[in-house]
């Protein structure tokens, strides 16, 4: 197995773990943690492709990851603010119970 494949497989595994968590856990914060893991898996992909790609001097992969990290930080801030706001309203962070829109 060449190094790129192993990094890609690690990233795929991380993505699946994050996905499984986001789909199965009931607490909204844990869903957010799962999403963060998926985002990080994507970042790892970018770095691995940049490193083993044809033109690492262009620094495209790392630049993308830097932007992704900044956006992830913003996403985490807004997401957690939303969770706190939901908690104030429903007194729970359980995603199964917050289903008013479900009809």
């Amino acid at each position: 197995m060449n190094p790129l494949t192993s990094y890609l497989l690690l990233s795929a595994l991380l993505f699946s773990i994050g996905l499984a968590g986001a789909l199965t856990r009931r607490n909204a914060i844990l869903v957010l943690i799962g999403i963060e893991l998926m985002l990080n898996a994507a970042n790892l992909n970018f770095i691995a492709f940049w490193r083993y790609g044809p033109n690492p001097e262009a620094l495209t992969g790392v630049t993308f990851v830097l932007f992704a990290i900044a956006i992830a930080a913003a996403e985490a801030a807004v997401g957690l603010a939303l969770i706190i706001s939901i908690y104030r309203h429903y007194k729970t962070t359980n995603v199964d119970d917050v289903s008013t829109l479900k009809g």
Partner: peptide, 26 residues
């Protein structure tokens, strides 16, 4: 419970995603 009602389905989906990704990568 800590896991939602559709937990099994979620794990199944995740496993399927991993299987597809792994197959594609290799």
């Amino acid at each position: 419970r800590q896991f939602s009602a559709t937990a099994l389905m979620g794990v199944g989906i995740a496993l399927a995603v991993f299987a597809v990704l792994g197959k594609v990568i290799t």
